[in-house]
Nucleic acid binder design. Structure first.
Lengths: 146, 146
DNA sequence: ACTGAAATTCTTTTGCT
DNA sequence: AGCAAAAGAATTTCAGT
C-alpha cells in the first residue's frame, strides 16, 4: 500500500469522521483527490467501514472476559464459531494455535451474566471453557502508527 | 441509559458515519433531536469517538497474537502498561485476574517481527511472556445487539 | 491521478412548543 | 426534550489538465 493511503488510514483511525477537507490539508492533496483515494480504499476492502467507539461501562457492559474454549470431542469437526455466532455477548472469536482452539472476547453486565453466558457457550458448542476476567483496560484499540 | 440512546449507539456501531437524518428515520425522531442526543452521548463520554475499521491484512499487519506477561520480580510495583505504551505494535493491554498480570494484543507483519517485538517487551517491562498466535479471526468487534 | 467548481446533502444553530 | 427552518460546511459529481 502506498504512503499517502497509509497516512489517510492512520488519520481515520484516530478520527473516523475527519472531513476530506482536513484530510486534504494533512496530506497535501485536494479534497477531491482524498475523496477518490478513500473511495478506492473502501472498494478494495482496506477500509471495511466506520464505527463509533463506546465506553462499555457507560453502556451497561462493564465486565469483560476472555474465554478460551476446547472441544470435548476432538474427533468431531469443530464449527464452534458458527454455533456461537448468535450469542451477542461474544464480541470477537479468534482461532488460535496452542492447547485451546478458540479465544472469545465477551462483555457482560455483571458476574451472574458471565455465569449464564458460560453455560450457553458450553451447551451450544460442546466445549470446555477457561475464563480470564479483565480487571481493567489500560488501553484498547489503539491506532497503528504510520 | 435510555432505550432510544441505546438504539442510536447500536446503529452507530454498525455505521459510524450514518447521518442524523437516517438516524432520525430509524428512531422516529427529527434530525435535530437525534443530533442533540448524540452530542450528549459524546459529552457524557458514552461515545468516545469514531474510528475507521481496517482490514489488517491489507494494511500490512496480517499476524495477530496475544501475549500474556508476568513480572520477573513480583515484589516491584508493576507499571508495565506505562512502560509498554510507546510500542506501537501493541493494540491493547488488559489487566487480568489469574496467573499472569496483563494480556497484550499485538499486530505485526511477519513472524520475525513478532520475535523482535517480544524482545522489546521483555526488556522494556522486565517480564516473562507467553504468546498465543492467532491463526484466523472468524469475527471481531461485533456490534452489541440492542 | 489530481484540481477546481457546481450541485446536493448533511451538520449545526437558533427560535419556538 | 422535541420540532422546524435557516445558515454554514461537507460530500459528491463532473469537466478539464
Amino acid at each position: 500500500m502506498e504512503d499517502i493511503d497509509r497516512k489517510i488510514v492512520a488519520l481515520l483511525m484516530r478520527d473516523g469522521r475527519m472531513s476530506y477537507t482536513d484530510l486534504g490539508k494533512s496530506t497535501g492533496l485536494s479534497t477531491s483527490a482524498v475523496h477518490q483515494r478513500v473511495r478506492r480504499l473502501e472498494e478494495r476492502g482496506v477500509i471495511r467501514g466506520y464505527a463509533v467507539v463506546v465506553d462499555h461501562e457507560a453502556v451497561g457492559l462493564p465486565l469483560t472476559a476472555f474465554i478460551s474454549i476446547k472441544p470435548i470431542d476432538p474427533s468431531q469437526p469443530d464449527d464452534s464459531p458458527d454455533r456461537l455466532s448468535g450469542i451477542p455477548e461474544i464480541e470477537a472469536c479468534y482461532s488460535v494455535a496452542g492447547d485451546e482452539s478458540y479465544i472469545l472476547k465477551v462483555r457482560v453486565g455483571r458476574p451472574a451474566d458471565l455465569e449464564d453466558l458460560l453455560a450457553r457457550i458450553r451447551s451450544s458448542a460442546n466445549v470446555t471453557t477457561r475464563t480470564t476476567i479483565v480487571l481493567s483496560t489500560p488501553y484498547e484499540n489503539r491506532p497503528m502508527t504510520a
